[in-house]
Amino acid sequence: MTDPASNRPRVGLFVTCLVDMFRPSVGMAAVKLIEHAGCDVVVPRAQTCCGQPAYNSGDRPDAKALALQTIAAFEGCDYVVAPSGSCAGMLKAHYPRLMDEGSNDHARAADFSERVHELVAFLVDVRGLTSVPGNFTGKVTYHDSCSGLRELGIKTQPRRLLTSIKGLELKEMADSEICCGFGGAFSVKFPDISNAMVEKKSANIAAADVDVILAGDLGCLMNMAGKLKRQESSTACRHVAEILAGELDDPPIAAALDKR
């Protein structure tokens, strides 16, 4: 709970499995931003995955078990923050639906749900952040990931923080609200359709003529970055937290290591 001495709220970081395994620098950027917003960060070891692969494949029992595991792992946190609209949406909107209404588990999931926020929405809506540590000069565009946009209403928050960075020019691309074609297991089960969808996305990115394409979800970013790389595009692909935190030492997603 909130440290009475410092009056800093205790934020549990839900890392997300993709950030943990593929791009931990996004997690470090998230920590920096949450601390910048006047909070203490804890990272429970008992967290793994939010359970979406099971939930969206129809495996409710496993999804429920993972939900209960996650809820238990974050007990004692004032807030639970995830650098992903998709995972935050699962924690916030879907965990209560996994539990039988009226049950003790349902009450726990509902209480947990109230404490869950997507990273950028947390910074803006809960902590009232108006400026960020990052500085960046160049043109960027922002892709609205589906769950963040439609489940959590994240639209203006990242744009507000991005435009607070001097030298950063935010350009809107066409169809920023249309799915990139990732969809978790969808991209594996229906790779042809997924590929056709990300092709439309990459055409819109190209037409926006920017240096960096940003988004709040690593799944979508890996999909878009993979496509851009295959097309030998020079547009870099990064999680929005990296720019906001000014954590740009690591090469962009899918970029070669020696190419800085």
Binding site: M21, V188, N195, V198, A225, K229, R230, A254
Partner: peptide, 16 residues
Amino acid sequence: GWTGGRDFPAPQGRTF
């Protein structure tokens, strides 16, 4: 299926 149409980004090498 994925790599038929796009690259698959490599991890940074250490977990968070």
